[in-house]
Design a protein around this nucleic acid. Structure first.
Length: 605
RNA sequence: GGAGCCGUAGUUCAGCUUGGCCCAGAACGCCGGCCUGUCACGCCGGAGGUCGCGGGUUCGAAUCCCGUCGGCUCCGCCA
C-alpha cells in the first residue's frame, strides 16, 4: 500500500493555498489531520506546519485508484496529493479554516506512510499528561501551539543575532568540555578517557571564557549558548538551558544596560510587534526587598509591603514585640477589598505562610461598617490600632495581614504571599509587560552553613568603586564587607528574573582580594581560577556584560507557565528524558575505557 | 534532603471516604459495517484493563495499612 515519494515535488504548503490558486493544479504533502468518509465522497484535512486544507476524493470525479487508497487513510497517515484547487460549492465553506473557501479535488494520491494509534489527538487544548506528551514529543510538536512555541523561539534567536550583530557584537563559541569550578551550582561531569581519573565539567555559563575573550581584544562578544547546572528542577529550571550571553569592553553599567534594553525592545518589536517603552525603570535591591519582599518584584500590581516594626515594639502582643525587640522585622500587606475573604480563606493564607517558614500570620479585617475583626487587636490600645491602620492605609473593606520574623523569613513569606494574593484575587492584569532593573545588589552575603562570606552574584563581579578602597579593611571585618555593593544588575519581567549581569573585576589584585574575602585561599584560587587571574595580568580591559535566560524569556512571550513548553525536548523533574529514557546505564566496556567503576545502590538497577 | 497533590482501557477521568452490588464503568480514540458535501460528519456493532509496582490486613482489596517507583508543584538547592 505504501508508495515512495519518487519524483513528486511539493508546490505549496497546505496552509498557504488561497483563493488566488483556484484553478491551479497543485501538489501537496502532509498528514491526514482528519478523515471523513461518507461512503461516497471522502474528505481529508491535510495538514502541514503552515496549516490545513481540505482535499476531496469524489468517486465520480477522482480516479478509482485514488478513491480506493483514500478509503484506507487514517489519522496522521502521511500523504502526497496532486489535484486541482477549486472554490468550495456554495454553502460548504468552513470559516474555521484559513483555507475554508477552497478545497483540492484529488486526481493522484500517494500514501507515504501509516501511523499507529495516537496516544493523543494532534490539536491544541488537549488534556494529556505532560509525561505522555514528552514521550511522544514528535506528535506533541505537530500541534500548532507547540510549533508556534518553537517558531517564536526561533524568531527570538534571529532577532537577537540581528540586533547584536548590528551593534558590533561577534559570535564566538566557547567550550562545552571545560574545567569544574567551585562556587555556584553543582557541575555535570564528563570523565576523560585520555587522562583517567580526571573530569571535564559542562559549563554553568561561559562566564570565564567571555571575560578571557575580552582580554583577547574581541571587544564585543555574544553567543546563544547551552548552560548546564546539576540542581533540582522547577517549572522554570532545566538542567540544560539556553542563555543569550554577551560581554563588552571599556564599558560601565549604563552601556550594558542600554544594549540590553535595545535588545529587549528589538526582540519584542520584531517577534511580537510590541513596543517596549525605554528606559526601563530601576529600583535598588533594598527598595525591592522592602516594598516587595523579593529581588524579582512583579510590578504589575500593588500590594506593597509596609514596615510596622516600630509600632510592634510598643504593643502588648508578644509575637510582635519580641520579634521587633530582637532585631526581627514586622511587615504587613494591605489586601484591598480583602475583608470579603472568609475565615477559611484567611486560614489558607496562614497555611501558605507557614509552609514558607512563618510561624503564623496575624490579620485584621476592617469591616464595611468600620468594625474590626481580628484575633490580635485585643493586644493593642485604640491609639496603637489607629496608628497601625493609618500606616497600612487601611480602609473599610480591607484585610491587613502581618508577618513577624527574622528579616529573611518576613521578606520571603510576604514576597510569596504578595504574588499568591494577587493571583488569587485576580489583580494581575493580562497583556502587561512590566520590566524593571534591580540594581545596587550587595556584593556578598553570609553563608550560615559554610560559615563564610559568599558572592551574591558571582566572585568576578566588581564591587562599587568606593568599596574597592575598603577591601583590605573588609578582609579583617566581615561587617564592612557585608555593606559592599556590587556593580551587578538584574532585569526582571513580570516578577521573573530574565537577565542578569555585572561589570567584572579586570584587575588581578582586586580579584585576588575578593577571593580572599570569600575564603578562597591563594592556592585554591590558583588551582581553580588560575587561568583567569593569569589572563587578567596581561592587559585585561575593563569589561562587563549580561546573560538572558532565553527559555524564561520565550516562555513569558508565549504566556506559558513552564519553560518546558518552549524547549523541544525537555526533561522531567527527575532529570529524565521520557523520549530517549536518558540517563541510562552504559556498557561495562565503556566504563572500563574510562577507568570508572560504578557502585549501584541496592534498591536500584 | 523535605512537604503537598496525583497514578484505574490508547487518552482523559468516574469508582476509593463507608472493602463484597465491580472477573471495574463513561467519554473520546481504535476496529468492522452502512452512509455522496462533511469539516467534533452521522448511524449500527465490536474489541480493548498486571486498577503504577511489591508486601501486609481480611473469608474477600482498585478501595484499608506499609514500602517503593514515576509525574507535577513548592521549600532547601540554583554564584
Amino acid at each position: 500500500m505504501l508508495e515512495n515519494l519518487g519524483e513528486f515535488k511539493r508546490d505549496f504548503y497546505c496552509g498557504d493555498l488561497t483563493e488566488a490558486n483556484i484553478g491551479e493544479e497543485v501538489r501537496l504533502v502532509g498528514w491526514a489531520d482528519s478523515v471523513r468518509d461518507h461512503g461516497g465522497v471522502i474528505f481529508i484535512n491535510l495538514r502541514d506546519r503552515e496549516g490545513i486544507v481540505q482535499i476531496v476524493i469524489d468517486p465520480s470525479k477522482s480516479p478509482k485508484e485514488a478513491y480506493e487508497k483514500a478509503k484506507k487513510v487514517r489519522s496522521e497517515y502521511v500523504l502526497a496529493v496532486r489535484g486541482r484547487v477549486n472554490k468550495r460549492p456554495e454553502g460548504t465553506e468552513n470559516p474555521k479554516l484559513k483555507t475554508g473557501n477552497i478545497e483540492v479535488e484529488v486526481d493522484q494520491l500517494k500514501i507515504l506512510n501509516t501511523c499507529d494509534i495516537l496516544p493523543f489527538p494532534i490539536e491544541d487544548g488537549i488534556q494529556v499528561s505532560e509525561e505522555v506528551r514528552l514521550k511522544y514529543r514528535f506528535l506533541d510538536i505537530r500541534r500548532p501551539s507547540m510549533f508556534q512555541n518553537l517558531l517564536i523561539r526561533h524568531e527570538v534567536y534571529q532577532a537577537t543575532r540581528e540586533f547584536l550583530v548590528g551593534n558590533g557584537f561577534m559570535e564566538v563559541e566557547t567550550p562545552m568540555l571545560t574545567k569544574s569550578t567551585p562556587e555556584g551550582a553543582r557541575d555535570f561531569l564528563v570523565p576523560s578517557r585520555l587522562e583517567k581519573g580526571k573530569f571535564y565539567a559542562l559549563p554553568q555559563s561561559p562566564q570565564l571564557f567571555k571575560q578571557i575573550l575580552m582580554v583577547a581584544g574581541i571587544d564585543r562578544y555574544f553567543q546563544i549558548v547551552k548552560c548546564f547546572r546539576d540542581e533540582d528542577l522547577r517549572k522554570d529550571r532545566q538542567p540544560e538551558f539556553t542563555q543569550i550571553d554577551f560581554e563588552m569592553s571599556f564599558v560601565d553599567e549604563e552601556d550594558v544596560m542600554a544594549i540590553t534594553e535595545g535588545l529587549v525592545q528589538h526582540i519584542f518589536k520584531k517577534v511580537l510587534g510590541i513596543d517596549i517603552k525605554l528606559p526601563i525603570k530601576r529600583i535598588t535591591y533594598q527598595e525591592a526587598m522592602e516594598k516587595y519582599g523579593t529581588d524579582k518584584p512583579d510590578l504589575r500590581f500593588g500590594l506593597e509591603l509596609k514596615d510596622i516594626t516600630d509600632i510592634a515594639k510598643e504593643v502588648d502582643f508578644k509575637v510582635f514585640r519580641t520579634v521587633a525587640e530582637e532585631g526581627g522585622l514586622v511587615k504587613g500587606i494591605n489586601i484591598k477589598g480583602g475583608a470579603k475573604l472568609s475565615r477559611k480563606e484567611i486560614d489558607e493564607l496562614t497555611e501558605f505562610a507557614q509552609k514558607l517558614g512563618a510561624k503564623g500570620m496575624a490579620w485584621i479585617k476592617i469591616n464595611e461598617d468600620g468594625s474590626l475583626n481580628s484575633p490580635i487587636v485585643k493586644f493593642f490600645t485604640d491609639e496603637q490600632i489607629n496608628k497601625l491602620i493609618e500606616r497600612m492605609e487601611g480602609e473599610k473593606g480591607d484585610l491587613l495581614v502581618f508577618i513577624a520574623d527574622k528579616p529573611e523569613i518576613t521578606y520571603k513569606v510576604l514576597g510569596h504571599l504578595r504574588n499568591h494574593i494577587a493571583q488569587k484575587m485576580g489583580l494581575i492584569p493580562e497583556g502587561k509587560w512590566e520590566f524593571v532593573w534591580v540594581v545596587d545588589f550587595p556584593l556578598l552575603e553570609w553563608d550560615e552553613e559554610e560559615n563564610r562570606l559568599v558572592a551574591l552574584h558571582h566572585p568576578f563581579t566588581s564591587p562599587k568603586e568606593e568599596d574597592i578602597q575598603k577591601l583590605d579593611e573588609a578582609i579583617e571585618n566581615k561587617d564592612i564587607a557585608l555593606q559592599f555593593k556590587s556593580r551587578a544588575y538584574d532585569l526582571v519581567l513580570n516578577g521573573e528574573e530574565i537577565a542578569g549581569g555585572s561589570i567584572r573585576i579586570h584587575r588581578p589584585d582586586i580579584q585576588k582580594k575578593i577571593f580572599q574575602l570569600i575564603g578562597i585561599t591563594d592556592e585554591e584560587a590558583e588551582e581553580r581560577f588560575g587561568f583567569l587571574i593569569n589572563a587578567l595580568k596581561y592587559g585585561a580591559p575593563p569589561h562587563g556584560g549580561l546573560a538572558f535566560g532565553l527559555d524564561r524569556l520565550v516562555a513569558l512571550m508565549r504566556g506559558t507557565e513552564s519553560i518546558r513548553e518552549v524547549i523541544a525536548f525537555p526533561k522531567t523533574q527527575k532529570g529524565i528524558c521520557p523520549l530517549t529514557e536518558a540517563p541510562d546505564f552504559v556498557d561495562k566496556s565503556q566504563l572500563e575505557e574510562l577507568g570508572i567503576e560504578v557502585e549501584i545502590p541496592e534498591n536500584e538497577g
